[in-house]
């Protein structure tokens, strides 16, 4: 279940900003007119909702006000909620349940440098371990210095098994070993860490494709999930990241990391508005348990309540 309270405290900065700003605006502009909407646009843009997402919301409000008399600006919070919800509904139907019946269930974690992939893996492993699953993590980041050590510390902390690697080793070969190990050890969930890479580096994206191909070859149906980890402080570039990774690999879900630190989180709306990839998890703190399933309705509630 999506724990609203946790997300709320994680989002407190965002909410404080967005809701506070909107309420202040309502105080200053009781009338819902052009001027009000212009100011509202600024507030939404400053929350990283993006030009497209913002204009969708603003035009949604405009249309509604044409059709019926919605009165002054005091109802704006409701209107914002409705419009954001409809963006999420238009974008994707998201089924929060995960089918882990196939074992090993293989997950591949990808993303640009420094978004929080390894930390996310630690948290994910904890979740599965709590559900009494047997978890194996694979250190397919063989590029960055000490990436393997970092993953190992996480694995030890949560009590997951790990397939190690050498710096500079072909990551696909690590993936190969990991799947073999997962099958022979009868593991429920295999999570493969990969090296951070900028989505514009075509050779590095090829490397990822190779890892995926190897996984597929070793175990038909794998990888069952490819999660893209995006840093919540990222601006509109997150869209570009999602697009490139999706084109290369077919991303099945997004993890929005570090949502607790940012005053924003609006990028979620931008992603929903422009791409059809569901956000599946949000990272809301530094603790190992600070990872929540994402649910758009609760998210909008948390954002504007």
């Amino acid at each position: 279940m999506f724990v609203l309270k946790k997300l709320k405290s994680g989002l407190s900065k965002t909410r404080g900003n967005l809701l506070k700003k909107v309420k202040e605006l309502v105080g200053l502009h009781p009338k819902l007119d052009q001027k009000f909407l212009e100011k509202l646009e600024e507030i939404l843009l400053s929350a990283d909702i993006g030009v497209e997402g913002t204009s969708k919301i603003i035009s949604g409000i405009k249309e509604k006000s044409k059709k019926e008399d919605i009165g002054g600006s005091e109802k704006i919070v409701e209107l914002l909620k409705d419009n954001m919800n409809s963006i999420f509904e238009d974008s994707y139907k998201y089924d929060a349940s995960e089918d882990l019946s196939t074992t090993p269930w293989v997950q591949m974690i990808v993303g640009v440098n420094g978004t929080g992939k390894t930390t996310t893996i630690g948290k994910l492993a904890k979740k599965y371990l709590d559900d009494k699953k047997k978890v194996l993590v694979a250190a397919c980041d063989t590029f960055r210095a000490a990436a393997g050590e970092q993953l190992e510390i996480w694995a030890k902390r949560v009590g997951a098994d790990m397939v190690r690697s050498q710096l500079g080793q072909d990551p696909a070969s690590v993936a190969f070993d990991a799947v073999k190990a997962a099958i022979s050890r009868k593991v429920d969930v295999l999570i493969a860490d990969t090296a951070g890479r900028l989505h514009t580096k075509s050779n590095l994206m090829e490397e990822l494709k190779k890892i995926k191909r190897v996984l597929e070859k070793c175990l038909s149906g794998a990888p069952h999930e490819i999660l893209l980890v995006i840093d919540a402080t990222t601006g509109q570039n997150a869209l570009s990241q999602a697009k490139f990774f999706n084109d290369a690999l077919g991303v099945s879900g997004i993890v929005l990391a570090k949502l607790d630190g940012t005053a924003k989180g609006g990028i979620v709306v931008a992603i929903a508005s422009e791409l059809k990839i569901p956000v599946k998890w949000v990272g809301v703190g530094e603790d190992v348990s600070d990872l929540e399933k994402f649910d758009s309705k609760s998210f909008v509630e948390a954002l504007l309540e």
Partner: peptide
């Protein structure tokens, strides 16, 4: 600072 940072760059 990460060049990809969004609107929050000013707060950071």
């Amino acid at each position: 600072a990460d060049a990809m940072t969004g609107q929050d760059a000013v707060n950071i």
